[in-house]
Design a protein around this nucleic acid. Structure first.
Lengths: 337, 337
DNA sequence: AACGTTCGCTATAACGATTCAATAACCGAG
DNA sequence: CTCGGTTATTGAATCGTTATAGCGAACGTT
């Protein structure tokens, strides 16, 4: 493969001049510039990023580690972060930890080894020792959709507690008093917070909140939960269901419908995330919307702030507020209106 | 940040020894090994990937460029590729071209600059000049889910023509003669091939295939198409619908149901991809399943073959066969059985 | 005509690791 | 003891860039 020196020889100039053509073209006379560019084209020269990074001392990339690429929530987050990175002429390396703490740690290590400028990460569980060490060694890190317990790190989150409260308030206002929360594992911080927010509101209103913990947040989990639910005698069954995410909600909606329950007449459903599918469902789904793109943008901005002005950078915990999008799945049934 | 020399000084050994501890631990005595490891821990030393890559002449990564990370099809592809990469101690850099040829080209350039060992790519449209040049310069490339026109490159695809034929045959066997194909743009190779396969079968059986071209493959496209469809007089309406993917099919299913059509009684639906949601839908969806994980695996295997034995490597075009998964959405209606 | 000033280009020292030939240390055998 | 043969460690060359100091040549000013 052609090196910069091959280009220099071919163009009859020094390597320094070739480097200048590449990095500060205006510092080179048009004539030599043309010669060099011709040589580059003829040889198919492609600069060697590692050599560049070595002398520069850093790469022009940041890392983004998410637990689930398939999830539109994280895809939008990534999009937001990429937009900001583009403005800074930095590229984003995307890694999918797939909810495995092992993979997460491995990827973080890899990113550090590569001397990325900084890292955006949605930790699988909590902030581990490995991550702390990384921060201590000087790599700027911003937590995405995960609160920073410590104050030595920035974080950008959406207020899940309020989100849960929003959903519950909405259902209470619609006249429901017996509500089910579906989601899990409850140890997942987001799930836990949504539940807590909902519980507060329901209890304050004198209602009861029944927790149906699932193993995960996928369609399969929804199906088993909803099947069991639908087969209970109507009298003991909550009249509304708040699901920890839309996938769960859609799964529940479909399964409940198949089991003969009418939504929202027999069962009102509220989801979380407002994914595209939510609005397009057989019964359009009421959902709690998070400013996901904005979340990614702000996280990246905080990261770049820390990268460029480490001195006067104060670590901040940014909290966004979610918004309830009311649709048909929680409409007040005609007979109750 | 600590360099290898700092470690060497601290441990009282030479840099060569530190390097040995890192790369061939068995070649250094247990005593010094311990000293060095202690120094590494104390200083928080992290090797510099760029420096390594520079002397090694190559990185231990491969690139994967897909048009849509959100799509479970590509997520599974990626998983398959990653599994194989892991076996080779190579990490996968994932890039989302987001169906933009510009981004695709930019990412490919970046990967070449980084001297990755090879690249797996699902081209947005066709194989462009930029990609040819890259191959000519010597970076091994394998096309994923896209046929290689030229024979100077490997490709791994699923036979979309057969997939379309399978779907059509299934519907014909169920007694349908008037069938709609929904999907688009038709210039997308996969969409075109599925249509062609279906058309062949339908015409051979003496039926008619009506093409409803959509702007894209998302929920929104499905909704408009299905709404128009459902409002046509029943007599002029096809009795079955073959959608170019499951998202479209699910969108159509939901919209049609809302417009009062019963599935499969008034309208049979067959999708493509067999995503998780397909089986869990209100009416479980008949779909054409592709061996996606396997696709990613084999693509990566071909890539590594080319990387390790460039000499005796013959470029191959591997074609997988899809499989029809029959479910309720295309069941024969009771009155016709 | 001599003198600074630009301007365009060159030569070379980093950057941080790995590799490998050379050397030192050690050990048992003669 | 000394010698051959391992084994452990060292030191320097190397990878492909960028940055920088320096060096002529050309030019405008006095």
């Amino acid at each position: 493969m052609a090196r910069i020196e091959d280009v220099a020889v071919r163009a009859g100039v020094s390597v320094g001049t070739v480097s200048n053509v590449l990095n500060r073209p205006q510092a080179v006379s048009p004539a030599t510039r043309a010669k060099v560019q011709a040589a580059i084209a003829e040889l198919g020269y492609v600069p060697h990023a590692a050599a560049r990074a070595l002398v520069a001392g850093r790469t022009s990339t940041i890392g983004l580690v998410v637990p689930e690429v398939t999830n539109p929530f994280f895809a939008d987050l990534a999009r937001g972060a990429e937009d900001v990175a583009d403005e800074h002429d930095v590229t984003v390396m995307l890694y999918n930890s797939d909810k495995s703490a092992d993979r997460e740690l491995r990827y973080l290590g890899q990113l550090e080894t590569q001397r990325v400028q900084g890292i955006l990460v949605t930790p699988v569980r909590q902030v581990t020792g490995g991550m702390d060490a990384l921060v201590a060694r000087g790599t700027p890190v911003v937590l995405l959709d995960h609160p920073a317990g410590r104050r030595n790190i920035c974080s950008v989150t959406v207020d899940d507690h309020t989100g849960g409260a929003l959903a519950a308030t909405h259902l209470i206002e619609r006249g429901h008093r017996h509500i089910a929360f579906v989601g899990g594992p409850l140890t997942v911080v987001q799930v836990g917070a949504r539940l807590a927010g909902a519980r507060e509101v329901v209890e304050a209103a004198g209602g009861t909140l029944e927790v149906i913990e699932t193993r995960g947040l996928g369609v399969a989990a929804a199906r088993t939960a909803a099947t069991d639910f639908a087969r209970r005698p109507a009298a003991t069954r909550p009249t509304a269901m708040f699901c920890a995410n839309d996938i769960l909600a859609l799964g529940a909606l479909q399964t409940a419908t198949r089991e003969g329950l009418r939504v929202p007449d027999d069962l009102a459903i509220v989801g979380y995330d407002d994914i595209d599918f939510a609005a397009a469902a057989a019964v359009p789904l009421t959902s709690v919307r998070q400013p996901r793109h904005q979340l990614g943008r702000v996280a990246a901005q905080l990261l770049f702030e820390e990268i460029h002005e480490p001195a006067q950078h104060g670590h901040r915990q940014v909290v966004f507020q979610p918004e309830l999008i009311a649709r048909e799945s929680s409409r007040v049934p005609a007979h109750a209106g």
